[in-house]
Structures are given as C-alpha cells and as structure tokens.
Design a protein around this nucleic acid. Structure first.
Lengths: 192, 192
DNA sequence: AGAGTTAGGAACCGAATGGTACAAAACACA
DNA sequence: TGTGTTTTGTACCATTCGGTTCCTAACTCT
C-alpha cells in the first residue's frame, strides 16, 4: 500500500558483487557502486544499511551461488569420479582465466587477501573456505579415500585452487595453467 | 652544502613497504603512510614524487630483498638438494603463517590480487613472479630434472606457493599447513 | 660570519569520500 | 478522488583524500 520499488534488489546486489569482486572493497567507491547498481543514493540507503552491509551481503551471495555451485559440482556423481570432477573444475578455471580480459579471479580468494569488512566478513570467508575444502574432501572420499587421507589431499588441492586463482587474476598463460593442472593430477595420484 | 636529511630514506621506504604489505595500496592513506614512515608531508613530497611512486619503490624493494633472498636460498647448494630447499622454504612459510598475529602473507601475492599501481606495478609484479618461478625451476634442475620437466613442476610449486600464502593471510592452522606441504612433497616425487 | 642551498612543517587547496535530511513523486487502498 | 505510505532524487553534511605552497630552520661552504 505504498510506492513500489523501481529496481530489483537482487539484481542490484549482483551488480554490487561484480564490482567488489573486480576492484575490492575500498577501491569500489560509493558513487561507482551506485552506478553499477543503477540506483541513486536515496534508494541505496533506504534498501540497505550502508556500504559495508552491502559488501557482507555480496559475500553471502557469492557463497550461495558460486561456492554452492562449485561444491554441488564436486559432489555430483553424474560428472564422473571424484578425481574427474576436481580436474574438470580446475580445467574450467584455467579456461576461464585464459580468456583475454577475464582477470577477476575468485571473489573469495580476493576478499581473503583484501581483509576488508571487519571480523564479520572474515568469519564468512573462513566458512566459505571450509565449505570448499569439504567439497574437495567429499569428492575424494567418493573415490574410496578414507577420511584422513582425503582431508589432507583436499587441503593440498585447496591450496592449488587458491594459487591458480591468484595467477589467473595476475594474467595466466595457457601453458602455465596446463602445468598447474598436471600437478593437481599428481596430487590425485594420477602420475603422468 | 645544504641542510641534511633528518630521516633515513631507506628506512622510511621499509616502513612504507610494511604498511602497503599489510593493508594494500588504497587502504594505506597518505596520513597513515606518513605516520608509518615517521616523516611529514613536506619531507615526503620532497624526497619522493607521490604515493604511487613510493608504492612502486616498495615493490622494487620487495623484489631486491625478499624475492632476492628467496631465490638465493633456492639456489644455494649448501642448503641440501633442490627438493630439500623447496621443502625448507615451504616449511619456513608455514611456520611463519602459524605464528599468532602474523597475517601478512606475501607482498607479491597480495599486490597481484590488489591490482593497484597501474601497468607499471603490473609489469614489476609479473617480473617478480617469473623470477620466483625460475628460482623453483633451477632448484629442480639441480636435482637432475631436465628443463621442460623442471619448468612444469616449478609452475605447480609456484601455484602451491601462492595458495599457501593466501591461506596464511587468511589465518592458517598448523595441520592445514602440514597437509599443504605434504602435497608439495608429492609434486617433488617424494611419495609419503 | 655570511651566503647559498636544501629539508621540514604548517597552512591551505579542490575534489571526493561515506552518509543524512527532506521534499517531491508514485503507488495502494478506501 | 483523496489519504496514507513508501520510494526516489537532490541538496547538503562533515571529514578525509592526495597534493601544493611557502616560509622558516638547519646545514655546508667560502
């Protein structure tokens, strides 16, 4: 029984996430943020609390969507063995990074380095990291590895994952990516 | 034949590097920078050009000192085989990261994610990355690996290196670090 | 001691920062 | 067609940003 909102809050949050993902928290000024979200200051502060809470919301969004999809893919038996899924994930990331102009990297990884958003953001990021680790771990367990072995290997793979995403943001070359993936294969016991 | 400088420019640059290392480029405001360097604005702009050129100078400093030392260590036969040196380096990093309160990570890695300082900074960072890769590569060649094999493995190790440093900045646990190192051992062909 | 030169520090600059206040606009409902 | 409610946009806020100006202090050399 009042004036309806003229923008889609979810869509605006998506745009905000893309900006934070690209340039980080501080470098994303409020005016840039408003431009990306295609709303004005009034709507912004009416719909959300402030810049930081929008940042936290985008972290949640990344967790729900990107991390969620990734973990789901890692746990999907239809995509082959656990090892197959892990390698496929790395292949996708490498392909993405090689594309000219795509220098985003991983929002989780970038945000971990950024250290913005206070302790609340840090807690979210650690939870996301654990979730990713568990995704790798379960994929390995699907291949018959016992809990402790799978955990250890999963952590090694998680490390390689973050490393690859840093290099992707730095501008990864095709053969560099191929070499990285070959090492992941070695972690999976697939000697080549 | 004039008034001498009251501060050590090299020492001030060291402090500037520590600040950029910790919080990144944008988050390090000029006043914070001046506080860390223990000089006032007049001296700052007299001795250096501006904030960005100081940032670039700290990147050079990191390259000269930290990256230089690391590569020197990797190439020092007195420290054991090439594999020994690589594992020792990872062990040192893991120990450092586990220490409570040390959440700096690697300046090179942080700066790669930060994407600040323009194309000049980017060129320096890519050069540093290549230098590190070559350090790993030569260490592996010392163990008898041929050029192409060493190159591929070095890149995998470089990836693990960056991943470990991201996790270190995120707050690495002791067993997480141990698991990561175990995977590096696997890359080195030392099955365990 | 005096001249010449450079460092230091404070005042000042416009622009941009994140955030607030408020009036006008646009709707739902009676 | 009002009436009440919420959104929207604009004007405004103090603060901080990186950077400049300029005068004084401190030194070296003759």
């Amino acid at each position: 029984m009042a004036r309806p909102r003229e923008f889609d809050a979810d869509e605006a949050l998506e745009k905000a996430m893309e900006l934070f993902w690209d340039v980080g928290y501080d470098e994303a000024s409020l005016s840039e943020l408003l431009g990306a979200m295609a709303i004005t200051k009034g709507s912004f502060y009416k719909a959300f609390q402030d810049k930081q809470s929008v940042y936290l919301a985008t972290l949640d969004r990344y967790n729900d969507q990107v991390v969620g999809n990734t973990v789901a893919f890692l746990g999907d038996p239809a995509e082959g063995t656990g090892g197959d899924r892990i390698l496929a994930l790395f292949g996708r990331i490498a392909d993405l990074a090689q594309k000219e102009g795509d220098r985003l990297g991983c929002f989780l990884c970038n945000a971990l380095v950024d250290k913005a958003g206070g302790s609340e953001a840090e807690a979210k990021l650690q939870a996301m990291t654990r979730r990713l680790e568990n995704g790798f771990c379960r994929a390995l367990q699907d291949d018959g590895l016992e809990e402790t072995d799978a955990r250890g290997t999963a952590r090694g793979i998680l490390t390689a994952y973050f490393g690859l995403r840093v290099l992707g943001r730095a501008g990864l070359s095709a053969d560099m990516a191929a070499d990285c993936i070959r090492q992941v294969e070695r972690m999976l016991g697939r000697v080549r």
